[in-house]
Amino acid sequence: MSTSHQQSPFARGIDPAELVYCKGFELHADGRYADAAEVFRVMLQIAPTDERGWLALGDCHEKIGQKRIAFEIYGAGSVAAQPAPRCLIARFRILYDAGRFTDADAAISDVELLPEHDERMSKIVSDERRARP
């Protein structure tokens, strides 16, 4: 058996959460936010420490205008799925758009303080800061 085969996703199996996320992502991309939210809720039960589930569920609420709910979901996600830089960035966006600039700045600064903060995340943060100076 070749090494490449051993390292293939086949050999390692499939993360059930990935399957669920994939389905939710599809629904989200189709604009079916209520259906997508149901799927992401299931995903969170399977993988509560996966940041993507929190982020996606919050985004579903944002898409139907429930920014406050989304904000709290991102907050819970940033606790449950540490580190959760994208949840923090999502919170930053909501805070900034609500005019709470000091809180927004604190939120995005938290991303930079994460131990896992790397070059790619630096670029994301700098782009966000440019978009919302």
């Binding site: 209520a34 809720r41 579903c60 609420h61 205008g65 429930q66 709910i69 709290e72 449950a80």
Partner: peptide, 23 residues
Amino acid sequence: TGAPLVLAVAAACLSTAAFAQGE
């Protein structure tokens, strides 16, 4: 049992209720 799972369940409650009301 782990805070993340507790959070996930509670978030599901919140999300479901909010969606039901919102839609």
